[in-house]
Simulated assay, not measured.
Amino acid sequence: MIKMVAVDMDGTFLKGTNDYNRARFAAIYQKMLQKEVKFVVASGNQYYQLKSFFPEIAEDISFVAENGALVISEGRELFCGEMALSLVQEVLAFLETLSDVQTILCGRHSAYVSEQEKTEFVEHGRIYYHRLKVVPSLLTLTDDTFFKFALNVPVEATEEMMALLNQKFSGKIVAVTSGHGDIDLIIPGLHKANGLTILQEKWGIHEKQVASFGDGGNDLEMLRHAGYSYAMANGSPEAKKAAKHQAPSNQDEGVLVILEELLGEEHNDQSTFN
């Protein structure tokens, strides 16, 4: 029986239009409320961006944002990771030696980008970071709690860059990708599954009672973690290998399709969400 549903957003819950079928989800959400099933948004994106997708219920649901670095449930912060400032500056100094790497530094109160970055990168970043400040230099920032770097590199260089960063900062940071040349540098152990565990402890929910949906490399831990896990048809080979099941693509509203099936499915006269 499922008591908690966790969904990635880009490439999973959201269609290519950067939106979802709101009326269809609203009906599903009402059924979840009736069955006391928790709904969790688990994404690498910024909390302030994620909550904007759910204006009516943002204070009633939970968010595992920034790939697990920030957990907010029903409007209350439960967890916030933190990188040492010395590590932040060490990573930034190394990134400056690399070509074709664009960087956003992510903090609790805002994300930050250097005024030296290309305008197209900054404007694209605003889609995922509703709080994004352009500053003279990332190296001089100290007045925030920093927990993630969001990088963009040429798509063909993604795997090589991840290997380089994981080797250079082994034990200090972990590089994960959500595809399209996007790489997140996160605090070791602060992935989406860790965020789900924090929420499970709050509610007394076992992994076997969790359903998760994802499509990329930053979803792997969450997909392995949940008793019911679904990789999207459009997902990466790694996501499909990590998940126990497959869902239709995000373009076909796969998350909503599966949730409707689970809500209506009968097992010994009892719903999966019973």
Score class of each variant (00 low, 15 high):
E36S: 14
V37D: 08
V37R: 09
K38N: 00
K38Q: 10
V40I: 12
V40G: 01
V41I: 15
A42V: 04
S43A: 15
G44H: 07
N45P: 10
L50D: 09
L50A: 09
K51N: 10
S52I: 13
F54P: 02
P55A: 11
E56D: 14
E56S: 07
I57G: 03
D60I: 10
D60H: 11
I61F: 12
S62H: 14
F63V: 05
F63I: 04
N67P: 00
N67E: 00
G68H: 02
L70I: 02
V71F: 09
S73G: 09
S73V: 08
G75Q: 00
R76W: 05
L78N: 12
F79E: 09
M83R: 02
S86R: 15
L87S: 10
L87M: 10
L87I: 14
V88F: 08
V88G: 03
Q89S: 12
F94P: 00
L98I: 08
S99H: 08
S99E: 15
S99K: 15
S99Q: 15
D100L: 04
D100F: 06
V101K: 01
Q102K: 11
Q102D: 02
Q102M: 12
T103N: 05
T103L: 02
L105I: 12
L105T: 10
C106K: 14
G107Y: 08
H109F: 14
H109L: 11
S110Y: 15
A111Q: 10
V113N: 01
S114A: 06
T119W: 09
E120A: 14
F121D: 12
G125H: 07
Y129L: 06
H130F: 04
H130T: 07
H130A: 01
R131L: 01
R131F: 00
L132C: 00
L138P: 06
L139D: 07
T142V: 07
T142G: 03
T142W: 02
D144M: 10
T145C: 11
F146I: 02
F146V: 11
K148C: 06
L151I: 03
N152A: 02
V153S: 01
P154K: 05
P154I: 09
V155G: 13
E156P: 02
A157M: 09
A157P: 09
A157T: 00
T158V: 07
T158N: 01
T158E: 03
M161P: 11
M161S: 03
